[in-house]
Write a protein that binds this DNA or RNA. Sequence first.
DNA 1: TTGTAGGCGTTATCAT
DNA 2: ATGATAACGCCTACAA
Lengths: 343, 343
Amino acid sequence: MANRKEVQRAGILEVARLAGVSRQTVTRAMNDMPGISVETKRRVLEAAEELRYRPSRFGRELVQQSTQSLGLIVSDLANPYFSELASEVAKVAAANGWALVVVEKRPGPESGRAELRSLAGQVDAIIAYLDLAPHDIDGIFGNLPLVLLDTSEQTLDALSPSRPRGAVSIDLAPGLTDAVDHLLALGRKRIALVDIMYSTDESVRCGIFRELIRERGQEPTVIKVEVAEDDLHVGRRAVEVAFSAPEPPDAIIAFNDMSAFGVLKELRVRGLSVPETCCVIGIDGLKIGLFVDPELTTLRLDFAAFAQLAFDEAVQLSTTNVSSPLPQSRKRVFHELVVRQSG
Amino acid sequence: MANRKEVQRAGILEVARLAGVSRQTVTRAMNDMPGISVETKRRVLEAAEELRYRPSRFGRELVQQSTQSLGLIVSDLANPYFSELASEVAKVAAANGWALVVVEKRPGPESGRAELRSLAGQVDAIIAYLDLAPHDIDGIFGNLPLVLLDTSEQTLDALSPSRPRGAVSIDLAPGLTDAVDHLLALGRKRIALVDIMYSTDESVRCGIFRELIRERGQEPTVIKVEVAEDDLHVGRRAVEVAFSAPEPPDAIIAFNDMSAFGVLKELRVRGLSVPETCCVIGIDGLKIGLFVDPELTTLRLDFAAFAQLAFDEAVQLSTTNVSSPLPQSRKRVFHELVVRQSG
DNA sequence: TTGTAGGCGTTATCAT
DNA sequence: ATGATAACGCCTACAA
């Protein structure tokens, strides 16, 4: 049986032996350090090449302790919402010299636990969209700094207060107000909001919306759609539901941009003109909103600012030392109404 | 001046001291290992909690040597093409227990060198879309296993043969043949291909296309478009160019899906019906091709297979030991014609 | 159940 | 210019 050592990668000692020098000289050659003759350096690099030597990142990182690493957890990178966010997080992380480790965690409390634990052992802080119970979060991430994105107040309140946790939440209220006022200014009489029924309770946005509309003397319409695999279907289904009602809406605020694309599509299939017959407003401000026709009016989230806030919070948490108290801050981001063609 | 040690994170020894045990007992408590009394464990965990202790990933990884880490380099995560690819790479990596480190490298030979070097020091292999000269690639990545995605033959040939390098290329020829034959079967007489002028030379796909069309007794039309910030503009510009010619095309094969969306949009703006007046075929098979109207007919790339091939190659390269020869394989992926509404 | 000794692979420091 | 020695923080193996 072959010695395990033989099949593994060459280490610094093997290179040193082959080149007939000490390991320190190998280090000098590999890292372009001064204090080594060109001839020796050449011999060492030759030996390294021959053995396909590559310094172990473990050994190096242990002694240098410099590299900082950030974890990002999202449910689906192929979803433009998450990929635009990930792109901004990547930029912020790179700009500050942090590496970015990305993990996809599919929805469902049981899925991907092992990956999350593994991630927790490899990074210095985590930014995450997470659908885990507070107890599980504490169990999996322990004392690792964790910044939760757009999570509920209940979840935040239930987290262990002794753990380094932060949050950046999305406050839809101001943007939703702008959208509603914009539609009213356009003379719309029956404004509808699409809501996905994740549970039996209405989502927070419904409450805000109802109050907004009532304050302005109209009757709110909420289009409730079952959870679907695809937001496109959510949007199409929303139109089916809304236009089978006796009095269909003349404006639809979709659940997000992706579902708004579905709304646009189903409206076109039905021969209903946008925005003449029905305005459509999305939420998120994805770049591909410019790719559809008509171009999507939307409540744009500033992903760069969102990422920056989350990153700052993560750094803050990870540099807090033992003696200082935990910050426990909860930041917020808002939307900006971007009026394009659909509403 | 405060001792640097004081402001840093607590180590295993401090926890051990506070709990009044040896560091080994701390390890047992932290890692849920047997051979420790509940009472001692409680005391240790309490001490760890108080000091906000978290085992150093450096020390752990060094001794365990288990965690494998894959780097992925793309130009823009917010571009759906790259995010769909990244999503598949993430799945493959996770399924095999590898962590995934993502880096964005904007186009341009000078940008992001430092980030790439940093990445090279933190991972065990890299999969990359890269626009670097072969010499720079060898300089930056050294003996680190590197799998290049969709790169030119010239680049591959110029790489140092002693380095662990692999490649997965996209062979457009079979798919393009299918697309052309499909359009001919539809009775199209003037099929045009959109090409971006990255350099003064025509791209490879143009040559393939011209030959294909001529073999079938038609005259090829290539729509040349300048490089643009956004593929949407590429598509719109292509239509402007094509329909300002004396004999406009009755079918357009776009540069990719993103530019195809631009083509669709500009055609609609001009009141030209799709597919009646002009068929449109994209390349890539992005998920959002289903979001536009009409749904985009496209040459779909199997991103999952693409990612799997690249990952396998990366693993292959990184497990090759010193004695065995370098594989140097060049794999290929192809497209599948997916007929939807636009052509 | 608990503690001690050793080593993982590298870089930094100091001596030669 | 080069080499010897000592960390880095943790885990595994073995001894008590």
